[in-house]
């Protein structure tokens, strides 16, 4: 069973792209979301990401992430919408609480951006091997140690998630009520588990570091990787699409 940020094997057009193209495309989409103030453009980025997920054969996990993000977005929307006091009041509630048109617009843009930024990164990490990503970052000029640290940190996120759920399972088996539906109670119970998670994480990282040292981590040079990545027509198409998206955002920014 693959976790949230695990590589999903495949041989689709998107899987075969140069890792740098995937990286640039996903960060380009994120940039577009932050440059624009237009809700429709941000929504367009979300649709583009879903299309990308469908092409990579991972629409189902992408929709699952979208569902999870939608729940979080609803909470964030509610937390935001009552705090913006500028603009025309569209809904008045008791105790001087009201919702304005600007509040609605700002909160919508906020949650749309959250979704639009998360989806491309999730898809990029799911269709790119961490080793390819490390090599790509090294080719960009980032020292191998830093590239390795960055990708290792990302690789550890799902591992820690899995570890945490296993610790919670073990505590449930001891009678701790992690199967309670009360969120606050659950949160209170989770805090003491940070200790075993932290200790097991430190132990795991230490073991990984020793293993890397033993495999000649420090003698690695820029050209030590045997893989060669070639930019193809697919990469040109993807990067061209990104340029068009960024151009649309630029036009909207200056003339919209």
């Amino acid at each position: 069973m693959s976790g949230l940020l695990d590589y999903v094997p495949g041989n689709t057009f998107l899987h075969r792209l140069h890792p740098l193209s995937k990286l640039i495309f996903s960060f380009g989409l994120c940039l577009a979301c932050f440059l624009t103030q237009n809700h429709w453009l941000v929504l367009g980025v979300i649709v583009c990401s879903l299309l990308q997920a469908a092409l990579a054969g991972m629409l189902k996990p992408a929709l699952a992430v979208l569902r999870a993000l939608s729940k979080l977005s609803l909470l964030l929307f509610l937390a935001q919408v009552f705090f913006v006091r500028q603009g025309q009041i569209v809904l008045s509630l008791p105790l001087d609480i009201y919702i304005t048109d600007q509040g609605l617009s700002f909160s919508c843009l906020f949650v749309l951006r959250l979704i639009a930024v998360t989806l491309p990164l999730f898809i990029m990490l799911s269709i790119t091997r961490m080793s390819d990503l490390t090599n790509a970052l090294t080719r960009l000029g980032l020292p191998y140690k830093y590239a390795f640290a960055l990708t290792t940190a990302m690789r550890f996120i799902p591992l820690f998630g899995k570890e945490m759920s296993e610790i919670m399972e073990a505590q449930t088996a001891r009678g701790v009520e992690f199967d309670s539906k009360n969120f606050c109670k659950k949160l209170k119970l989770i805090l003491p588990l940070c200790l075993p998670l932290l200790l097991s994480s430190v132990r795991r990282i230490e073991n990984s570091a020793i293993a890397a040292e033993l495999r000649g981590f420090n003698v690695r040079k820029k050209d030590s990787g045997y893989k060669r990545y070639v930019l193809g027509r697919g990469d040109a198409a993807v990067l061209g699409a990104l340029v068009l998206i960024l151009a649309a955002v630029g036009l909207e920014h200056f003339y919209g």
Binding site: E166, A170, G175, L193, P196, L199
Partner: peptide, 17 residues
Amino acid sequence: ARQAGFLFQNPDRQICR
């Protein structure tokens, strides 16, 4: 868990105090 006890393969999952 009030009636049954479960021992996991990895003790570090269980220990939290």
